[in-house]
Design a protein around this nucleic acid. Structure first.
Lengths: 193, 193
DNA sequence: CACTTTGTACCGTTCGTTCGGTATATTGAC
DNA sequence: GTCAATATACCGAACGAACGGTACAAAGTG
């Protein structure tokens, strides 16, 4: 079993219990690896395990979300992708990634623990701003004002993160689904087709 | 020093470090109380301390937020409070409570730690739904459709929670201020004056 | 005096981490 | 092809430190 095999498990555990809340005993139990084996794959210990999980999330963003947004923002002469369709695809990926809202977001989990904040802050901050910029560029390429486009990108992040919090607090995930359905149109308000 | 004196400190610490991330040593250090004193005031230990902090947040909701919303929703003949003004006042309180976005939300912190989830879930869930209902009733009393009013209440929670996450992740609190400024009008969209 | 509040020392447990070592598989030398 | 050498994956046991929590007597307070 390679290191990468266990990163998905790590991601699941860290976003479920948080950094401080997740113990090596639990990791050992869930991965089926002894504690010593964990240190073979992750010599940096718990910190490196969390970094690996965080890295997986950021790679999801880089490979599944950012490219198609960049494509929709590109100003090639044969502009075939409409912004609304790009955002619909994005929301579909988001919906799948967060399991219809039932998965917490590792970014949010780590952000809210100041103890682990400094360690991972740069990567989380990078992810947020990349995503916001990617959305903004799509809207700018559709003729929207630059400032407003940036704000809409922020609003998308706010909607996703807020809906996850609310749904987990209420144990009711209908709000997340509604948000996912409404977000594309909300982002495209006032842009010409 | 009475018990209540230290609850504010507890609230600050729990929302800063989370439940698992906050240790009794740190609490002892920050309050200036020895462990014995802490257990004198909070016989239930760490759990009771977190509950006291959570209770303070919920009491803030009950005393500062819900009453004025209920007043704005009341259908007395001399209806002097306009919805937009009620929401503006609410947002001002929220802005102050979260220190312009720089304070994390204890609800969100506890919600994202599944370990502590079951202990506090009922109180957090209660708080969310009470707040949503209070907003919805204001909008309903202004003639808005009931389903849409409920959704706007949820959207307000989503906006607040999401903005807090985003701002903490970016170490930039301008989005929170913008959200606070925009929220009242957003909630009142399409209602007659 | 009675009663509340606190300091000190301590409990058992669990934390993250490390050590020494064992299988199995792959490689290299001859 | 044989056999030593190396690399990889894994584990049990234990480490010191810190955890949440407790017992109890001293100190403060009316």
């Amino acid at each position: 079993m390679s290191r990468q095999t266990h990163v998905s498990t790590l991601l699941r555990l860290f976003r479920q219990f948080g950094y401080e809340g997740l113990t090596l005993s639990k990791i050992s139990q869930e991965t089926g690896l002894g504690k010593a084996s964990l240190y073979h794959h992750f010599p940096g210990g718990k910190t490196e395990m969390a970094e690996a999980a965080l890295c997986q999330v950021n790679q999801w963003l880089e490979t599944k979300i950012l490219p198609s947004l960049a494509e929709a923002a590109s100003l090639e002469e044969n502009l075939q992708i409409k912004p609304i369709d790009a955002f619909r695809a994005m929301c579909q990926d988001v919906n799948h990634f967060f399991n219809e809202g039932q998965n917490a977001c590792l970014w949010a989990v780590l952000v809210l623990e100041q103890s682990s904040n400094d360690l991972f802050h740069s990567q989380i901050s990078w992810a947020f701003s990349q995503w916001i910029q990617a959305i903004a560029k799509v809207l700018i390429s559709a003729g929207l004002d630059e400032t407003l486009a940036q704000q809409r990108g922020e609003d998308a992040m706010i909607a996703i993160q807020g809906a996850l919090i609310l749904c987990h607090g209420m144990h009711d995930f209908t709000s997340f689904k509604r948000m996912i359905n409404q977000l594309p149109q909300q982002l495209c308000q006032g842009i010409e087709d």
